[in-house]
Nucleic acid binder design. Structure first.
Lengths: 340, 340
DNA sequence: ATTGGCACTCAGGACAGGTGAGTGCCAGCG
DNA sequence: CGCTGGCACTCACCTGTCCTGAGTGCCAAT
């Protein structure tokens, strides 16, 4: 039984629909592809595919349109990420290599992704919890006010101000700086609590309240409630979509994109930096994104992911191309960060 | 001659148009406002106002719509910024006071503005050039690699990595930290070049290449080419506009909003933190914003502006309300920054 | 200067008919 | 048994026509 042909038909329909943005009918399909059978046969196949839920008809006398389930099958079994051309790779690399600091890397990456894919791009800053401490700095602002600056190995900088219970001399600050850094510099932020647990015991009793205060601020704001950050680019690409892509308006999508929490959840379970994940239409948890697809990947210096990046667009999307671009960008960013 | 009435008519038309989003005709105008004259009289006035360029007709048999010139007159002479209610003020203040650091202040501010005005909000980070140095920190990364961290009085943190011409000992780094900070801590970043000019002369000759390298990096990246940053919120509000507001699509507006340069130029000549400026339609330099209006203000700790903030929306906008909100938010942010 | 009256304009909604791309089904063929 | 050509059917969409109503400009009268 030519079950294979049915899959060919599905693939052909998706390809046509993605490029023309119009429901595709049996006749135009046989014209544009060498399927070797007549349109009537295709019609039977299409009816079967619709029966199984891979296709749908906007209205009776129109062509077919892929369903979320159809796209899912396509992504899983009928296509693979399309590698970029050497020229594109070269352009990506040299563009990213021009960055001067982490902010710059992240912003360049997000713009690059938006431009390559013509979709909305999202990049998460390297997660604090998964980063290591490069240096912890304490700066005196006044007798009882201290500025804490944390610098991670990825170049991320976080700072907090803190009111001390008592005055602290410059020497004590320097001493503290040494104690903290010798214990946690080079370690992962997540391990900080254990490494620092007994630190208050090692200082003179009169300094203990200050040290406890500093320690708890550090742990609380940087380890327990680390601020995750994301940046966006290419929102304007959403306006190139048609009413067919987003039923009524792009409103709910734009609204979803404004909520950090929603964006972060896109990368929620990112753990490795190798695989590209695709979430299609109804598969998205967030209600406003039920008509959109997300192609995402982790990225990081080594194989483990530091954070996520990806793009978002209508379900009618060039999946192979998008996946290829996301994969490539994730790799290069990881590389750049590893060197930086 | 009742020239006054003509202005009343203009004001009434703008108010009606802003709230209904429909061209307003002479009849509905006399129904909704106590103008004390008949619709025929109003028609004459409207014809005159159109003659002078304050009104326009979408098509012959339709009501009138304000032109950019009409809005300009309205903003300059027919209205004033509408103060917020005490309840609103209270809400603003307590919301902003909850911020933990500068990033948080800026992000809360932009979200607040978007929510208050129902428009797209833009907030610029306190400009580096107008800030003072709180502390300059040098961190050893390797023998010949140094991390420079600048912390300003507004809480902004900038960092750069630098390859040194020769090795530098820990003591030398500490020495350098002292020399730099004793000269420029507390001074404005813009004054740094003069204050640091003779610094290389004060160190031993063998250290001079390193010091020169550090100095030039500091000056070049932080003073000569300071990275200005802006954040956005409320883009989704643009989708609440009608085709009447943005002729074809909101595309050019979204595109303009993605370019940092364009956004920064919105605040280009911001110098004082008192006045609220309004730029209407064609008055905007950027082409994509010719159908939009911008309401902006400087904000800063003292009377002088550190940076700009504002909102952007269709020319059909509640100017008094928006101006009131922008003014109030600018004041509160300034206040918070002055304390922090 | 203001007003009531009047003729005029024209976008937008309602309705009708025609067109064509698309479908499902079926009988016949290899 | 799968494929195909043929055929009747459906229905979105386009086009043209007509109608309505909100709105206008102009003018003579107050």
């Amino acid at each position: 039984m030519p079950d294979d042909r049915r899959l060919d038909v599905l693939r052909a329909i998706i390809e046509d629909y993605v490029s023309t943005n119009e429901p595709v009918g049996s006749k135009s399909l046989v014209e544009r592809h060498q399927l070797g059978v007549s349109s009537a046969t295709i019609r039977n196949d299409m009816a079967a595919l619709e029966e199984e839920g891979y296709l749908a008809q906007p209205h009776t006398s129109a062509g077919r349109v892929p369903t979320d389930k159809g796209y899912r099958l396509f992504v899983d079994r009928l296509s693979t990420a399309k590698p970029l051309t050497p020229a594109e790779r070269k352009a990506i690399e040299s563009f990213l290599r021009g960055a001067v600091d982490l902010d710059d890397v992240v912003h360049r990456t997000v713009r690059l992704l938006a431009q390559l894919t013509h979709q909305v791009a999202v990049v998460q800053y390297p997660s604090l919890t998964r980063s290591s401490v490069r240096h912890l700095e304490f700066v005196h602002i006044s007798d009882t006010r201290l500025l804490i600056v944390l610098i991670t190995d990825t170049g991320r900088v976080e700072q907090r101000q803190l009111d001390l219970p008592g005055p602290l001399s410059d020497e004590a600050v320097a001493d503290l700086r040494g104690r903290f850094n010798s214990r946690i510099a080079g370690s992962r932020l997540a391990d900080a609590p254990q490494l620092l647990a007994d630190l208050p015991d090692t200082v003179p009793a009169d300094q203990r309240p200050n040290v406890v205060a500093v320690l708890s601020t550090v742990l609380e704001t940087l380890v327990e409630h680390p601020e995750e950050r994301v940046v966006l680019a290419g929102t304007a690409n959403l306006t190139r979509t048609t009413p067919l892509d987003f039923p009524r308006t792009i409103r709910p999508v734009l609204e979803a994109l404004e909520e950090q929490v929603v964006l972060l959840r896109l990368f929620g379970e990112v753990t490795d930096a190798q695989t590209v994940r695709v979430s299609i239409g109804e598969e998205n948890v967030h209600e406003g994104l039920r008509t959109a697809s997300v192609v995402s990947s982790g990225y990081g210096a080594a194989g483990t992911a530091l954070a996520g990046l990806g793009v978002l667009g209508p379900t009618r999307m060039d999946y192979p191309g998008t996946m290829g671009a996301v994969r490539a960008v994730a790799r290069y960013v990881g590389q750049i960060l590893a060197e930086g």
